[in-house]
C-alpha cells in the first residue's frame, strides 16, 4: 500500500485534467465541420486599391525562382491577352502562381478594375480532400501546400479546385507535378512573415493578418465606405471559407469571380455517398447471402453439381 501524498494527488489530478484536455481536443477534431484553424493567417485583397502594376507577379516570380516571363512585368499589354475565342483571360500556370487581370466592368462605367488572383487557400480545400494520396496539407498557418513526392499525377485536385488554380507540368516526362501558390509557406509564412506579393504591393491592396481579424477589417471597410464597396467579402463563406478574401467596388461576377459557388466545403458534396459506404459493407453481405439462400431454397448444392459437370 502506498499512501497518496498531497503532491502525488496533484500529479494525478493534473494528469487527469490533461487527459480531459486531450480528449476534448480529439472531440474537436472529430467534429463534422471544420472551419479552419483558429489562428490561420490570411490575406485580404482589396480590389479597389489595386492599380494593376504587376509588382506582385514580379515578386512571386522572384520568390519562387520561376522561369523568365514572356513579357516584362511592367508590360501592361498582357492585360489585353485573351484565350479560347476571347472567353478567358490569363490564368495561373506552372510559370506564374499569381496573375493580375484587367476588367472593364459595366458597374464602374468601363473604368478598369484589376483583379489579382492565386490559390485562395481554402479552409477545407477541395484539392486536399479529393487527393487519394494525401499530397496536400492545410497548415495551421493557413497555407495549402503540396508534396510532389507522393503525387501520382491523377489531377483530381485540378478537377476539384473551384477556383481553377492548380497547374500541372504536363511537359515533364519524369517529374510532372502540380504547381500553385503555396502562400510562400516554406520561405516566409512559417517564419511568421507575409508572402512576397503582399510585401511588394505598393498600395497594400493585399493585407496580411489573422483571417479572423481580416474579416473584421473587411466588414469595417464596407461599413465605413458603403458606396465604395459591394457589401460582400468574397471568400468569407465561399466553399466553406478561404484564407484569401476579396473586397470589390463592383459586383464580383463582373470581375471573373465565380459567384455561383456553394457556401459550404466541396467535401460535403461527397459525404452522403461516403456515409453510405460502411452501410454497404455492413449490410450487403448478409442481405445477398440471404437472397442466395432464399433463391436456392436448399437445392442449391444439387444444381451446383449438375452445372459443374
Amino acid at each position: 500500500m502506498r499512501k497518496i501524498s498531497r503532491r502525488g494527488f496533484f500529479k494525478v489530478t493534473a494528469a487527469g485534467s490533461s487527459a480531459v484536455a486531450v480528449s476534448s481536443t480529439k472531440k474537436a477534431f472529430g467534429m463534422k465541420e471544420f472551419h479552419g484553424y483558429p489562428n490561420s493567417m490570411g490575406v485580404l485583397v482589396d480590389l479597389t486599391r489595386c492599380i494593376g502594376c504587376r509588382t506582385c507577379e514580379a515578386a512571386c516570380n522572384k520568390e519562387h525562382g520561376l522561369p523568365e516571363p514572356e513579357l516584362p512585368f511592367d508590360d501592361f499589354s498582357v492585360f489585353d491577352q485573351v484565350y479560347h475565342d476571347g472567353k478567358e483571360k490569363r490564368r495561373t500556370s506552372d510559370k506564374a502562381f499569381t496573375v493580375v487581370n484587367r476588367y472593364n466592368p459595366k458597374a464602374s462605367g468601363g473604368e478598369p478594375v484589376y483583379r489579382k488572383f492565386q490559390c485562395n487557400h481554402c479552409n477545407e480545400p477541395a484539392c486536399l480532400t479529393s487527393c487519394f494520396v494525401n499530397a496536400y496539407t492545410k497548415t495551421k498557418e493557413g497555407a495549402v501546400i503540396y508534396n510532389p513526392d507522393v503525387c501520382v499525377g491523377c489531377r483530381m485536385c485540378m478537377v476539384a479546385c473551384p477556383f481553377l488554380v492548380p497547374a500541372y507540368t504536363y511537359e515533364s516526362a519524369l517529374h510532372p507535378q502540380i504547381k500553385k501558390c503555396n502562400f510562400c509557406y516554406d520561405t516566409r509564412l512559417k517564419y511568421g512573415k507575409p508572402p512576397a506579393c503582399v510585401e511588394a504591393c505598393p498600395q497594400e491592396a493585399l493585407t496580411f493578418g489573422h483571417r479572423k481579424t481580416l474579416i473584421k477589417i473587411a466588414h469595417e471597410r464596407i461599413r465605413e465606405n458603403p458606396k465604395k464597396y459591394v457589401d460582400h467579402v468574397y471568400g468569407e463563406t465561399e466553399v466553406g471559407g478561404t484564407s484569401w478574401m476579396y473586397l470589390s467596388g463592383v459586383p464580383f461576377d463582373q470581375l471573373g469571380f465565380n459567384t455561383d459557388l456553394q457556401h459550404h466545403p466541396i467535401l460535403d458534396n461527397t459525404k452522403s455517398f461516403l456515409g453510405f459506404v460502411p452501410m454497404v459493407l455492413g449490410i450487403w453481405p448478409a442481405l445477398f447471402m440471404g437472397f442466395h439462400l432464399l433463391a436456392k431454397g436448399g437445392k442449391g448444392n444439387d444444381e451446383d453439381k449438375q452445372s459443374n459437370k
Binding site: 509588382t55 515578386a59 522572384k62 516584362p72 512585368f73 511592367d74 508590360d75
Partner: peptide, 10 residues
C-alpha cells in the same frame, strides 16, 4: 532585373 525590364527584358 526585378521586373525583367530594360536590359533584362526577355
Amino acid at each position: 532585373r526585378f521586373y525583367h525590364s530594360g536590359k533584362y527584358a526577355p
